[in-house]
Simulated scan of single mutants.
Amino acid sequence: MTRTTNARIAGFTFLAYIAATIASMVVFSRATSGESIAAKMASILEHTTSMHVVILLTLAASFAALVLAVTLYAITRDQDHELALIAMVCRLTEGVIVALSASTIVALLWIATGNRFDASAVSAMHTLGEYLLRDDTAVCAFFFAVGSALFAYLLLRGRLIPIALAWLGVGASLILVVGLPAQLANLISPAVASLMWLPMLAFEIPLGLWLLIKGVGASQPRTPSVTNDV
């Protein structure tokens, strides 16, 4: 495919990825509402259709991450092949982890909808439910952030998109690269963890629209290395 075609596909996929991710988070949050684990499992039982929708949205987001990995690599590889390859692997890893999370949702449905636990096993059911409902999205998001930072840098280096937008992408990605490990280490509050995604949202929506409508500019040639004959 041509660079223009890859740019158009990447632009559409960016928007689809954002829509699928936000929709799955909203639906999942509503389907698992409740203060206690027992209440959350009961809510899942009442919202089995919503949970199946979340599975489909999760798979869509996973596939979108894989498409973005390949198309962004194709667009940026002329700037630095190795960095573009690392960025692609990070986004591929993200896509795989997102796909695996769909099996977690299937497991939650299996627990909530089955009559597999007698009174003596209720505690075990709650423990398993609590484990499956844990919030470890920062692990997957870290690979996303590293891949995003590298791709944004390469887009900036090649002047493939507006410079201001590229710098926003670099900055937004670096915030997450630093903030997500801090979130995993419990060094920042949930409120701060949520706010640090706003710059990324402000970057990816305009980027998706730009790639879809405008494509990418002509790639700037790399500065050739200078070698001295001995």
Rank of each mutant, 00 (worst) to 15 (best):
Q79Y: 06
A191Y: 15
L72H: 05
L156F: 11
P190Y: 08
N6P: 04
I188A: 07
T137P: 03
I161A: 02
L165H: 02
R91E: 06
V230P: 14
L156G: 02
Y17C: 08
L160F: 07
T127M: 13
D136K: 03
S225M: 11
L195T: 07
I44T: 07
A119N: 14
V89L: 15
V70A: 14
E35K: 10
P199G: 02
A60R: 01
G179A: 08
T58E: 12
V53A: 09
H81M: 09
F144V: 07
S103C: 10
M196Q: 14
L180T: 06
V70C: 08
V27R: 09
V226F: 04
H47C: 12
I44A: 08
R91F: 12
V70G: 04
A218L: 08
T4P: 02
A138G: 04
T32E: 11
L66A: 15
G147R: 02
V70I: 14
A202Q: 01
L195M: 13
A65Q: 08
V216P: 02
I213E: 07
A164K: 09
A164H: 00
R157G: 01
F63T: 14
A65R: 03
V106Q: 09
T227S: 14
A152V: 05
A42E: 15
V230T: 14
A218P: 05
L212R: 11
